[in-house]
Design a protein around this nucleic acid. Structure first.
Lengths: 332, 332
DNA sequence: AATCATTTTGGGAACGATCCCAAAATTGGA
DNA sequence: TCCAATTTTGGGATCGTTCCCAAAATGATT
């Protein structure tokens, strides 16, 4: 197709070895450098990356496999990954898991076929134990973001969901709340299990009360939170409610307000995520913010360590969310 | 590194040509097929895609360059692209424009260096005329989604923004409104110009009134819409307001309600986009829905036509939004 | 059994880079 | 000016595929 390194050599009146050296930043004599630059410009030469990758068996590229490329929670993580990748001189390419997993056994062919030097798997879906076990065997650099299935042997990074909920419970406890309701989320999501566990452990540690009928599920949408809260309002006795996502919390907030109760005077509520809308609803929602960028950076650092042959701790690395206190809770 | 086609040939007691043929779905004798399958399994052979691409000078992959990979409006478009790509047997890989444009002249190196067979450039940012002119010269398959700068010579696809606003104006006109305010958006976004043009053309065609002080800007956020509406409320005389995005409309809605006015009884309002929140605010927002998936499919079809060497109309292809009538407007 | 048509196979030349190693050119010092 | 040390260059092998083409094997027909 286009001109090759050989054409450049011919035009610049030198050899392909010299062209290759020049392209890779090695020193060449001043006047050959000028001739080469002229030749490259006039031919509009671009190096064939496939040939290069074949001989070097390296791509200088990492793949990020995402289950849903437009998930807003992933953008902070991706920013973190890209920051580290740029620093290391690597490129990032993204694969949408949905489209690829259709006909392929998995994303692993990207590694085996030499498309990328390593992969970050980014998904907050709950992960299959069997799939995780298979990933441990993969003889290529790999980093997981999300559910690690409490399994060792894989390098993985995640939000410390239990800690986030623990912070919320402790905060409410500090305000004097003792009886708290909880709106959980869809069972197929990774964080659900850990958030619920954080709730139960912290509440029992602080000797707080959470009756079974005070725990309901939702689908993490506004509408779902609205319906879940209406269900909760059938029951009595709790003074605060923890929603396992902000989206849900905002739906629940509306349900509480429509029931004629004042927030926070007659009911406190907190969320999880710190989405932008949370600072905009009235009252502003107290929630926890996830250190998404840190998670992305850690995953990338772990991946590059593997690529460069260093040793890496093949366990889960958790990052604690931080409490964002706003106006949706009151002292009791 | 891994086993090669030659290793497979040796184990299966045949030649690399036969292995290659088998891998590419050509017919081989029944017993050699079985031997090959066994050899591939036992060696855990995967073909080296870089070598393949070198000799074939084709990748069977298209690149999608996105300015912000987590933009929620892009997900529908991407779904459309992937649907067509899957049908054609192509893979999609995504490049985040932000990370790549840093040190590269542009995304064009992806084409020149042989990473992909064609590129879809997806961005709703306003495009530089100079950059567009340069793209016309690109000797590779290319499709644009978003602002085409009213320039011919490029295959591009976009929402028909003018038509969407025209529908909203006409709808309000039909309800009896004659004096309408408008909240525009950030100047760096592609759709802004076309939406404003659609407003002005339709309003003057229908002999409606829009005083200069009834047109304000916003940054397309809730907060921005809220502030813009408060500014508009300083003035008098209009009976309806068109917001150039739903996000903005929802902010404006709150400003109207906080000013003590009833929606829609005392003020009608419409948005643009049909985000999920629009059906959830109270009253539900009348807006226009963008045919995002159609846009993605058209772009992909145009790209594949170019890849397959067919002729393609190098102009802008526009898709009309559809009006979603809900409860935020009333007859006058 | 012999001939011919048709499958099926194997060898070797690309593809366009990198990189080793020896040859050529340059530099410096006496 | 000459020789040794150093820098710069060029040739050729290599990476792992595909694909052309001729050779070998198979099958059909008489």
């Amino acid at each position: 197709m286009g001109p090759t390194i050989h054409d450049v050599a011919r035009v610049a009146n030198t050899s392909k070895s010299t062209v290759s050296r020049y392209l890779n930043g090695q020193k060449v004599k001043k006047d050959t450098e000028e001739a080469l630059e002229r030749a490259i410009q006039s031919l509009n030469y671009h190096r064939n990356e496939n040939a290069r990758r074949l001989v070097m068996s390296r791509t200088n590229t990492i793949g990020i496999v995402v289950d849903n490329i437009s998930n807003i929670f992933y953008s902070g993580i991706i920013r973190g990954i890209e920051a580290v990748a740029n620093r290391k001189g690597y490129n990032c390419i993204f694969y949408s898991g949905t489209s690829n997993s259709k006909h392929e056994a998995s994303f692993l062919h990207l590694l085996y076929e030499g498309h990328v030097d390593g992969i970050i798997l980014l998904s907050f879906q709950k992960r299959d134990q069997q799939e995780l076990a298979r990933m441990i065997e993969v003889p290529y650099p790999l980093a997981l973001i999300g559910d690690h299935g409490e399994l060792d042997g894989l390098f993985s990074v995640d939000i410390d969901n239990a800690s986030g909920v623990a912070d919320l419970v402790t905060y409410l406890h500090g305000l004097g709340h003792r009886r708290v309701a909880y709106i959980s989320g869809p069972a197929h999501m990774g964080p659900i299990k850990y958030r619920l566990k954080g709730l139960q452990q912290t509440m029992s540690a602080l000797e707080m009360e959470c009756r079974p009928e005070w725990i309901v599920n939702s689908d993490w949408t506004n509408q779902g939170g609205y319906e879940a809260m209406n269900e909760l309002l059938q029951h009595e006795g709790f003074t605060a409610v923890i929603a396992s996502s902000d989206e849900t919390a905002i739906g629940a907030l509306r349900a509480i307000q429509e029931s004629g109760r004042q927030v926070p005077e007659q009911m406190s509520i907190v969320g999880f995520d710190d989405i932008t809308l949370s600072s905009w609803v009235s009252p502003k929602l107290t929630t926890v913010r996830q250190p998404l960028q840190d998670v992305g950076m850690k995953a990338a650092e772990g991946l590059f360590a593997q690529i460069e042959g260093e040793d890496v701790e093949r366990t889960a690395h958790l990052y604690k969310p931080t409490l964002m206190i706003r106006q949706s809770c009151t002292t009791l």
